[in-house]
């Protein structure tokens, strides 16, 4: 089963390598990893999507937690969370089909961010299902390039750790 991990790490050189290295060394299946600085500049936050049974995930969490630069690991799979991905798609768009493409873009509340002579670049954010759907819809026109960020996720409601602490008592 796929799990979503929210990981806080020290914003230091080499941290990403340590995390990625841990996954390859222990043979865990990483599906996506997104990382960036948080509102606290010395801390980065990673969203890691990893595939495995409960025992594997338990090990992933514990092994991640052992890395000195990892501050906190939360498996948020089973709580209510918001997740988003960003995708850029360069698609074949000769003038005769542009109208159709623009309709699709509208439906998905995506945006056209570049127009070439025979191409369009489309930007779309959304959860995984939406991203998959727009990709599928644009495929018939001929996708020339595609890049996506990997999932980022955040738990709904109050700050997750504080919430957890209250629960634990």
């Amino acid at each position: 089963m796929r799990h979503v991990l929210a990981v806080l790490v020290e914003n230091q050189p080499g941290v990403l390598t340590r995390v990625a290295g841990l996954f390859s060394r222990r043979g865990y299946n990483i599906e996506s990893l997104a990382v960036g600085q948080t509102h606290e500049p010395s801390i980065s936050r990673m969203t890691i999507v990893v595939d495995g049974d409960d025992r594997v995930i338990e090990q992933v969490v514990k092994q991640l937690d052992k890395l000195i630069d990892v501050i906190d690991v939360q498996d948020i799979t089973d709580v209510e969370y918001v997740d988003r991905e960003l995708i850029l798609i360069k698609v074949n768009a000769k003038p005769s089909v542009r109208g159709e493409i623009m309709q699709i873009v509208d439906i998905f509340r995506a945006r056209i961010v570049d127009i070439g002579q025979r191409t369009l670049i489309i930007e779309c954010t959304g959860d995984e299902g939406k991203i998959r759907a727009i990709e599928k819809s644009l495929k018939p026109f001929g996708i020339l390039e595609l890049v996506r960020t990997g999932k980022i996720a955040m738990v709904r409601g109050p700050k997750y750790e504080e919430d957890q602490k209250e629960d634990a008592v």
């Binding site: 050189p13 080499g14 390598t17 340590r18 290295g21 841990l22 060394r25 000195i68």
Partner: peptide
Amino acid sequence: ITGITLPIVKHSYL
């Protein structure tokens, strides 16, 4: 050497 030893140290510093 920090890269080479990454999987075999508890921690490392450059």
